[in-house]
Design a protein around this nucleic acid. Structure first.
Lengths: 249, 249
DNA sequence: TCTTACTTCGAACAACGTACGGAGTTCTAG
DNA sequence: CTAGAACTCCGTACGTTGTTCGAAGTAAGA
């Protein structure tokens, strides 16, 4: 098998699938089964708990066996990400105007990241681009086909929104986790930290602006939705000038 | 020493510093020295290469020694992050209108993340809130003191922009890294992947929109700046309605 | 001065990714 | 039809990692 740390092996597997050998015993497993098992682990116990040994034993094989199917852990993670992306509906097939398409894609993305927190963790660290990710980007660009934006501008918009989504998804997922994660004595990390911060925040005018916050702070999902609309307002004004006749750049 | 995985120990260290013991031999090190050494490692070789043993040997002590100063690796990382945040100038002290303040904070943040890629990696995974982070948020809120926005709304804006910055910083840092990281045979990950994708992108109309991209795609830093302005346009229109007399909410 | 609470750190533990090499299996070349 | 090449499988092992333990030494309070 191809050595790890060789991005070419991972890319080949991502795009062309496994190469069937001409000799030797039949495989008892498929790459798909391995990816599924790994995904199940990540889903239930988080990426942190995902180990080659764990996945192998879930499939009833030795750890070393996995390396006949997959060049290494990094490639396995890349496969997990790309197959997950493949499950999302393509953005340009959504109904409505470009703005409605972008909005529903963004909200669905956030929902998906919350449902599969491992996804945001893995995409944050950067994965090789697989066929589904590629197709997805292509689809996102197509949203702007009739807007008068150049392909270049469309990509700017797509990347802007993508960055926005990911930044907020990471924040929301973080908040979700700290609400679930518990200390040995049963309290959540969130309550521990909040209790701690409250004792400090009140310190005689040290934090003037924070003191003025009467409530708990805004709901992260509302923040997300609000900021997204602001961003889209900006994009919209750009789209309007683009569609003006005679101003094709 | 206090057990790891206990957030209270980390918070106490973060906010109140080390507690001087009343008996026993003097410490040969300080927490600061340890944080500095760890930061140096992260700066030069990345967070991935940061190990307790490595930091310890850099300081000429055994690995176990560090645990008398710091409850665990997680706490050390939290300390690194908070002291780094403490080095950034407070946003409300910047010159200009609220919009100029936000803009210069955002651009400086991005610069800082690019200069210290470990920072974005660590803040992405979520760290306990330290005193500097707290003071920083307080300062960011103060930017909007004279805008007519409520504290609640100001926090919404701050978090929106923060999420935006972090999402894009992660992307830019990722791009930086793939440009630097090399395969065993000397090519960068970036060139390998790009060469690979080019062979696939041309496949007979499979990727219609991507084909139309004549150039290399926009410069990530330009994307960042552009999207930020769009976002700020949206915020500005909100600020304008807030400062209208009689419309205080 | 004795005791108590420390610091230091070699050694060890459990878990990790992954390379190695031998045993067994299937296909193909001759 | 058979020899051996090419493969799968996997026990074992290597080198890491974070962290704990316990022994040895040190400073200060009683």
């Amino acid at each position: 098998m191809v050595r790890a740390h060789d991005p070419e092996a991972t890319l080949a597997l991502l795009w062309d699938g496994p190469t069937r050998p001409r000799r030797g015993p039949r495989h008892n497993l498929t790459v798909e089964e391995i990816v599924d098992a790994a995904t199940r682990v990540a889903e239930e116990e988080g990426v942190g708990a995902l180990s080659m040994r764990g996945v192998a034993s879930l499939l009833g094989v030795g750890a070393a066996t996995l390396y006949t199917y997959v060049p290494g852990k990094a490639a396995l993670l890349a496969l997990m990400v790309d197959t997950m992306i493949g499950r999302a509906p393509l953005p340009h097939t959504r109904p409505g105007t470009w703005r409605e398409k972008v909005r529903s894609w963004a909200h669905e993305d956030l929902r998906s990241y919350r449902e599969h927190p491992w996804l945001i963790e893995l995409t944050a660290t950067g994965q090789p681009v697989g066929p589904h990710a590629f197709a997805w980007t292509d689809s996102a660009l197509r949203i702007f086909e009739d807007t008068g934006l150049t392909a270049h501008e469309a990509l700017t918009v797509v990347e802007t929104v993508e960055g926005y989504i990911r930044g907020h998804a990471a924040k929301v997922v973080r908040a979700d986790r700290s609400r679930e994660r518990t200390t040995p004595d049963g309290r959540t990390w969130n309550t521990v930290q909040e209790a701690f911060l409250v004792t400090r925040a009140g310190e005689a005018g040290r934090y003037q602006a924070i003191e003025r916050l009467d409530t708990d702070g805004p709901d992260p999902e509302e923040v997300f939705a609000q900021g997204l609309e602001w961003l889209l307002d900006g994009v919209e004004s750009r789209v309007r000038t683009a569609s003006e006749p005679g101003k094709s750049h």
